[in-house]
Nucleic acid binder design. Structure first.
Lengths: 139, 139
DNA sequence: AAAACACTGCAACATCGTTGCAAGTGTTAC
DNA sequence: GTAACACTTGCAACGATGTTGCAGTGTTTT
């Protein structure tokens, strides 16, 4: 709980109950969350718009990042310390086609890809879809 | 023009002017297109809903596939012959942050990634963002 | 304590995508 | 060619998603 406040303070944000709750939700559920997920979890306490704005603020400050799969947009906590100035997001995300959850695979990096000449890459994002260990275990 | 009809026939679809026009638009513009792009190009001739349904049908039949970047959902022609039964889409997409266009890089494949044990991958999707040759040339 | 600033909720709006239904069109069989 | 059928389209309505302006409230700073 103190840690939450540290995180917010560290990114120059005021600690409000909404921000604490959103951050807490991200830390409890470990997978990526959509606005709808958060609204489902916290919607009785906070306005839809406030949740949108909280996500936008967290994005700008580098607390969370976007995660994309074929179903749409979600968000997940940044693992390495990102800030407003610098984001480091050459992520691998894994989406399970059985349970539908999407996670960051933290400790992998994306192998080098040789692009055709003339292309100047700036960021990489790999989405792998398949079955996650938990779903395979339940067969 | 005949080729269009062949493509539609080959996927067991009736040839209608809307489907021909949508297909033609994909073949002329080479980058990935959103529903909005198509509505802008063809909206005076066809209803919004019809375009949505055409995209949905093309997706199901394997004529186009989804392309995701940080801005949302687009569609692009399938290069290899996909069908209703089988899609092969381990794609690399390049999105230019200057002009905003997203393209498939056809001739590259995604290098092998070793996943933690327990994960069973089924498909791979790599999005690279940066600057495209055309935009770099204009500096 | 007052002024400046940031956050929230509400209302309204814009965009995006879906569904049901009636009318129209392409395809097949004769 | 024509009739019957199934598929496709346009319209209207709806739901979901995301944004903006503004007034009220709470925080910081001095």
């Amino acid at each position: 709980m103190e840690q939450l406040r540290e995180t917010l303070k560290g990114h120059h944000l005021r600690t409000t109950t909404c921000r604490e709750d959103v951050l807490l939700t991200f830390m409890n559920k470990k997978n990526a969350l959509s606005h709808g997920d958060l609204e489902g979890a916290l919607g009785e306490n906070y306005d839809r718009v406030t949740i949108y704005r909280t996500l936008k603020t967290f994005l700008e400050k580098g607390i969370i990042h976007k995660v994309l799969d074929d179903e749409g947009l979600r968000y997940a906590l940044c693992s390495h310390q990102c800030s407003e100035e610098k984001h480091q997001h050459d992520h691998i995300h894994f989406k399970c086609n059985a349970c539908g959850k999407t996670n960051c695979l933290e400790n992998l990096h994306i192998p080098h890809v040789t692009l055709p000449s003339g292309y100047q890459p700036e960021s990489f994002n790999l989405l792998i879809q398949g079955k996650c260990p938990e779903c395979l275990g339940n067969n």
